[in-house]
Design a protein around this nucleic acid. Structure first.
Lengths: 242, 242
DNA sequence: GAGCTTTGTCGTACACTGTGCGAGTGACCT
DNA sequence: AGGTCACTCGCACAGTGTACGACAAAGCTC
């Protein structure tokens, strides 16, 4: 049975169709296709992933992929869920919830930064793959076991995820502009120095900050500390609601 | 002088070239082009904005646009900065900083949700337009006047922005999947009910939450409250560091 | 074995994208 | 009158996702 269009996402289609038989022995499985897609995405970002490129990497025609996947969006859904398979959520048994949430947040951030393209998909498609939902489940459990009120667990989980995704999105965007232009941070900085200087002319507070940091602000320095600062704020605020 | 390629962003190019002369009276200004782009983007999202579509809306050829703008990315940079022109940041004179930051956060969220496409640009291009930097300046001022330590102002601003952008990204993504599929929330829900049910089979905590909310969870209900919950957490955590 | 269904592959084609190039047009200045 | 500048635009190119229909080959039933 070919992969039919008409469903909003892979997950809906998978549930609607009877589970696919084990398939013939020889051909590439959908797993392999997704893995190849991940390699292309990691190497060259979202723009590098075309069906033709993926086909040649798999040693098959571009349109053959459509046997396994209804369209490119389904492929991206699968790739995104793969990223969430890399995320570790500690159980609440051994360490206290603050520590556990912090470990989870760092794990999520690192996974997203390993695959910067994932953030673009995250903002465009509903994230309801099985691995993603498993992560959410474990995070729910964390807050539940910590004793959060049932009505607030959802809010708390959403809050943490939003913060991590927001931070990661900014960091990944920076990574991608550099790699897209094949620039070092210093080169980019040099290219934009005049523009920034002239924009700062009427912005005294920012200018002071800029001058204080010196002319060589690579936004990537201190990223981890900045992340921890905001995460600490979140956790303090959450703790106060416990 | 035509718009040359070779610069990483509009802002760098604008600063490098001498300021453009007032131009001939008749033709459309770049302002008008950007405004037309915004209309297309608001109506149909990022995918709807093609240079040809923009050209016909302006009553001109597609390639004529390249006289005013070096490439599509520059156009998107300008559009994004336009969105940041809609954001209000209250001064710190009249109300206390918590209230002021909250007003800013709500203003930012609403602007991003009015233009859901802006979040995709935000994740891809450095956000250094003049209006955006003016917003950042005012937010810096807010925290500065509140008495935050100079080293932490940057962290605090980043934290708030990351949270708002993270939340808005999720909300906008949901908006866009609905409008892209031309579905109501109920229709989408119906389409994915089986998939979600089967995914929840092994996820008791999520299943409990799902059942408690009833089968009709429109993620859009209570969005404002959820936003306020996390924002409250942030502000509490920030206040503790003051 | 023959014949049929299922699984899978692929070449071609279509509509559409961003944009480089070079010719053309009209207004303004000298 | 002639030249320069500010613009406009048609054409073309390489590349995109994917619909379609013709093929092939494996497995099942008789």
């Amino acid at each position: 049975m070919p992969a039919k269009q008409q469903y909003g996402s892979v997950w809906a289609r998978q549930a609607a169709e009877e589970s696919r038989p084990p398939a013939r022995a020889g051909g590439p499985s959908r797993q392999q296709i997704v893995r190849a897609a991940l390699e292309i995405l990691d190497a060259g970002g979202l723009d590098a992933l075309s069906m033709r490129a993926l086909g040649t990497r798999l040693g098959m025609g571009a349109t053959s992929i459509y046997w396994y996947v209804a369209n490119k969006n389904e492929l991206l859904d699968l790739a995104l869920d793969e990223v969430f398979g890399e995320i570790a959520v500690p159980g609440s048994a051994l360490i206290d919830w603050r520590e556990a949430v912090s470990v989870f947040a760092h794990s999520l951030r690192r996974a997203l930064l390993r695959h910067p393209w994932s953030l673009h998909i995250l903002g465009r498609r509903p994230n309801i793959g099985p691995r993603s939902m498993a992560v959410t489940e474990r995070t729910y459990t964390l807050f539940d076991d910590a004793g959060f009120h049932a009505d607030e667990i959802d809010d708390a989980v959403t809050t943490v995820m939003a913060y991590v995704i927001g931070i990661a999105s900014a960091e990944a965007g920076w990574l991608e502009t550099l790699s897209a232009g094949e620039l070092s941070a210093a080169e980019w900085q040099a290219q934009h120095e005049p523009a920034i200087r002239s924009a700062l002319r009427d912005l005294p507070r920012l200018r002071a900050h800029y001058d204080r940091k010196g002319p060589s602000i690579d936004p990537r320095t201190g990223q981890e500390e900045r992340f921890d600062y905001g995460l600490g704020c979140m956790l303090d605020g959450l703790a106060a609601r416990l």
